[in-house]
Nucleic acid binder design. Structure first.
Length: 575
DNA sequence: ATAGGGTTAG
């Protein structure tokens, strides 16, 4: 009778406690299955404190009850409690079984620190002979990947015997999640070559996501078409991933067609569209979608608002942005309370519009502890507006909070360079050398014929190098005669003008554009993906090129898209 | 009587 009660009352915490009291006072011999039920229901409700109380009252709980508690901690994102529980388990000499480790390893992943716990747990796993178990090994691979231990993860994954579909999918997924999409692609190809495993909708979702990251429209379409051919169920998650892939490749047209065709749309579909349109610079459409969504009774979540705020930011709509931020802050829905990312969006919005002091005040008054992302947004705005004094102040904060992120130091040095303060530039540079902060090297890529072609600055490694440079020269000559003047202000080194020009003219995005001019079809846009922000000069260059060649150029940088057509950019010079 | 994989944001 009691277990029936437990089954039906799973979502009501008060009732659960009442039943527990009843169990205790009834004097009935308490069956383990009943307690498992109780623990599981408390887990679902999220009352892990009470679950722990119930657990602690048990006399010598069997391993599976420990496991149930572990499961609860993992489900409710309480890694520290998991680790403590594991220690207790070992102190009491309770032997973990094969079910224990997947939970514990996942808890370490959630904890976010590998040493010393991660290695120690791995050692325990090996000691207990569970490393060869596919499920445990899969979790270990995910753990190492999440800690940036790519080599360890790869080694472990490759030494797994008889990998099944879930193991492959897990690895591909975690590659994408950690920004290693090229590796995900490689892995997918290997998986396809393995006759023993077939792919499923999980694989497709991760692959579409990878193609979005890489800006690989052709491969993405290929993966999807293959899924269709092989009768894989393309559910809403697959379609959402495809939607995102189109938007991340700059194809808003295809995204809109798909969005209108979709049988089902959920909050993720709408948010994907809003975020995607904001990124592509069409803020009006993004905000229109937001209104439409509400008219259709779909409740926005915090990601939707990130899209809305970034739409305002990219269009310089300060008042609109403040309005939406206010809606969030006043909402009775607790899950819509502005988070750090929203504050960062607001700082970006204010700062980019030149309201640097207001942005600074906004940070000082915010109720949450500002993180590097928020200060970074302000520093970025200082760079845009050449604001040295505030920039220095912000950079000082960032050296404290995020000394390992080179991008912030580079921003500061760029601010100095733009002001011609070369001795300050040198100081920042030498500080970076001392701290060992690395700059991320810029690169651009273009997809052609199902292949991604990568270019670094001044790259001469591409097989078509000669033709690319010739094309570049030809185009430069043509656009110079039309009034293009190299924007030498974008060179952040103290070198002579002539040298500046040649350094500029070999930026990775220019090489990529030249490659696109040689290879793509005239009617297709040239899609360039860049890992960092693009510079002023390349922006001007792309505008001219789009005019003289009558080709559309779609360029994605770290923050947003630039759609160049006939000499005009979709960003309207606001970026 | 318990275990590993997926979409928006970062």
């Amino acid at each position: 009778m009691l277990s029936k009660l437990l089954q039906t009352s799973s979502s009501k915490p008060k009732q659960l406690k009442k039943i527990h009291a009843l169990v205790l006072t009834s004097g009935l011999s308490v069956k383990n299955s009943l307690l498992t039920h109780l623990l599981e229901n408390l887990t679902l409700v999220g009352d892990m404190c009470y679950a722990r109380k119930v657990f602690d009252e048990m006399h010598k709980p069997r391993v599976f009850l420990w496991n149930t508690l572990f499961k609860g901690y993992v489900k409710n994102n309480l890694p520290f409690e998991s680790v403590q529980l594991y220690k207790k388990m070992r102190d009491l000499d309770v032997r973990p079984d094969e079910f224990t480790y997947p939970f514990v390893v996942k808890a370490i992943s959630q904890l976010g620190v590998l040493a010393p716990c991660g290695f120690a747990f791995h050692a325990h796993v090996v000691k207990h002979g569970f490393e060869t178990l596919g499920i445990v090994a899969t979790e270990l691979v995910m753990m190492y990947m999440k800690f940036g231990e790519l080599k360890s993860a790869q080694f472990l994954f490759e030494s797994m015997q008889g990998k099944d579909l879930v193991a492959w999918n897990a690895f591909i997924a975690v590659c994408v999640q950690t920004g290693n999409s090229a590796l995900a692609l490689e892995c997918y190809n290997k998986m396809c070559a393995d006759d023993a495993v077939l792919f499923d909708s999980f694989t497709v979702v991760s692959m579409l996501s990878a193609c979005g990251q890489l800006g690989s429209l052709e491969i993405g379409k290929e993966v999807y078409d293959r899924a269709r051919r092989e009768g894989i169920d393309c559910n809403i998650i697959v379609e959402n991933a495809r939607l995102d892939m189109f938007l991340k490749c700059g194809s808003t047209e295809e995204a809109m067609v798909l969005f209108e065709e979709m049988e089902q749309r959920n909050v993720v579909s709408w948010s994907t569209m809003i975020v995607g349109y904001a990124m592509n610079g069409d803020s009006d459409e993004a905000l229109a979608l937001f209104n439409m969504m509400q008219n259709q009774g779909i409740r926005p979540n915090y990601v939707t608002f990130l899209g809305v705020l970034s739409a305002c930011s990219h269009a310089g709509l300060v008042d609109e942005g403040k309005k939406y931020f206010g809606i969030m802050a006043r909402s009775s829905d607790k899950s819509l309370e502005p988070r750090k990312e929203h504050y960062a969006c607001m700082v970006d919005l204010l700062g980019r519009s030149g309201l640097l002091e207001e942005a600074y005040e906004f940070i000082k008054n915010m109720p949450l502890e500002p993180d590097a992302g928020i200060w970074g947004a302000l520093l970025g705005a200082c760079a845009v507006h050449g604001e040295i004094k505030l920039g220095q102040k912000v950079a000082d904060v960032l050296v404290e909070t995020a000394p390992d992120i080179g991008a912030y130091q580079v921003l500061l040095s760029n601010i100095y360079a733009a002001a011609g303060k070369w001795h300050c530039v040198d100081k920042v540079r030498s500080k970076m050398r001392k701290l060992g902060t690395k700059k991320v090297a810029a690169y651009s890529s273009v997809e052609f014929d199902g292949q991604l072609h990568y270019f670094n600055r001044g790259d001469k490694s591409h097989p078509q190098t000669k033709a690319i440079y010739e094309k570049l020269e030809e185009v430069l000559k043509k656009i110079r005669s039309m009034g293009y003047v190299p924007q030498t202000g974008s060179v952040f080194h103290d070198v002579e003008t002539e040298e500046k020009e040649s350094s500029l003219s070999h930026h990775s995005e220019k090489l990529a554009i030249a490659f696109g001019l040689i290879n793509g079809r005239v009617e297709d846009p040239i899609r360039v993906m860049k890992n960092l922000r693009t510079c002023d000069d390349c922006h001007v260059f792309a505008k001219f090129v789009s005019r003289v060649t009558s080709r559309d150029i779609i360029m994605r940088d770290k923050n947003r898209f630039h759609h160049f057509r006939n000499g005009v950019c979709s960003c309207r010079e606001f970026w």
